[in-house]
Design a protein around this nucleic acid. Structure first.
Lengths: 219, 219
DNA sequence: CGGTCATATGACCGACCAGTCACATTATAA
DNA sequence: TTATAATGTGACTGGTCGGTCATATGACCG
């Protein structure tokens, strides 16, 4: 955890440090990320950073917390009507996740690295994180299947895997499709000119997940 | 490219060096991967390795070549009957890819890192590699659509993305489902007891891609 | 035996790393 | 003003890194 000193910092300075740290950890592995680079970029002395954070891992964990917090925040902002079908809800979730990934690409990247790359976190925790998304989807699918919205013969785990696979790469796909680099989007702070495009893209994607690519079988 | 000296090495020694290098580059980023670790593990002097390879990048590129070569080899071994439908062909491709990923997890991991992680390769080349798989699928989908095997209203690019997303994580999913770690499978050299299971898994997956998860619409 | 050539070796180099600490600077209070 | 506490600083340490090179080893040949 950061020290009290860190939170007493002027807002702009604190933010500058976090930005530089995020940049470095988004661009590099935990091992490759360089504290020396971060302080040089932020224009502070190395000793200062070690007054704010215990060590490299402490800083890294704090960034991860920010990522998780921001993601939760955006996911919990999805509107949930009561009579919603499974695929309608999925659409909302994809939307929220797309916003998160497009607006905070560095946070998203750090989070991704933490789960799928190397990180100083205990392996047990990583396995749990990896599983949690899939387990969550598995639950949703199971429920929807019992309501009859989903074919009775689908393998729940396979479906859950399908969703997570699509989600983990959704951000880069969308960025590519709307022709803006992730950095541009983050710089703009929003993508108002493109929201309709983005919406159309993952509507299409969910349609594929719901109905498949094949021509309807006549059996 | 490795020097002639490297190819003159006794087979077992050469293989040991490659194994250790693969292990290191599979486990680490290009930057984090350590030549010192590799030579220590392989039991050779550092100077020796630099007689075989020009530098770290040279060694890395050679490993990548091996990965590409092995993948091509396994993909081109898929049986292709003439009257095959799109989804039948897809099944064959998934099968070949699953074998590659399960039998050579380290090669697969190095290849994955090269495309999606950091690597010393020119950015242009990486972008091309990233696109090539998607473009390939886009072509297949377009052709299948013209033959009427695929719904006329699917977005070709979205479909291609869907396939690549599923494929890039297929290996780890399968390994998890059949309850063997990737290392165990590689150690065994095959997974004879599980082939039926594996087959069933990606049949299920392709079925989802073809028909979707949703209950058939009655329109 | 000596001579020649391919190969093996590990001490060594400069660069960079995470992290420390004695000291300098600034803010606060008396 | 001075005393005290909080914050800022960057040279320094011990270590690892990729890469080099003078030297050692061994194989083959005459």
């Amino acid at each position: 955890m950061p020290s009290a000193t860190f939170f007493n910092l002027p807002d702009d300075k604190r933010q500058r440090i976090l930005d530089c740290a995020l940049e470095e950890f988004a661009r590099n592995d935990f091992d490759s990320a360089s504290i020396s680079q971060i302080v040089a970029q932020a224009g502070i002395a190395k000793g200062s950073l070690y007054q704010y954070f215990e060590d490299k891992t402490d800083l890294y964990r704090y960034l991860l917390e920010l990522a998780i917090q921001k993601k939760r925040e955006m996911m919990s902002a999805v509107p949930t009507a009561d009579g919603q079908t499974f695929f309608e809800m999925l659409r909302s979730m994809f939307g929220a996740l797309a916003q998160y990934e497009l607006l905070y690409p560095k946070l998203a990247r750090v989070g991704y690295r933490a789960v799928y790359g190397k990180s100083p976190l205990p392996e047990e925790m990583l396995r749990l994180a990896r599983r949690s998304t899939q387990d969550y989807f598995a639950l949703l699918i199971e429920q929807a299947r019992q309501r009859g919205e989903i074919r009775a013969d689908v393998d729940v785990a396979a479906g859950a895997y399908l969703f997570t696979a699509v989600l983990t790469q959704l951000g880069s796909y969308l960025a590519e499709r709307i022709g803006m680099s992730a950095d541009e989007i983050a710089a703009t702070g929003s993508y108002p000119l493109h929201e309709a495009q983005v919406q159309a893209q993952f509507n299409q994607m969910i349609d594929l997940l719901e109905s498949g690519l094949g021509t309807p079988r006549k059996d």
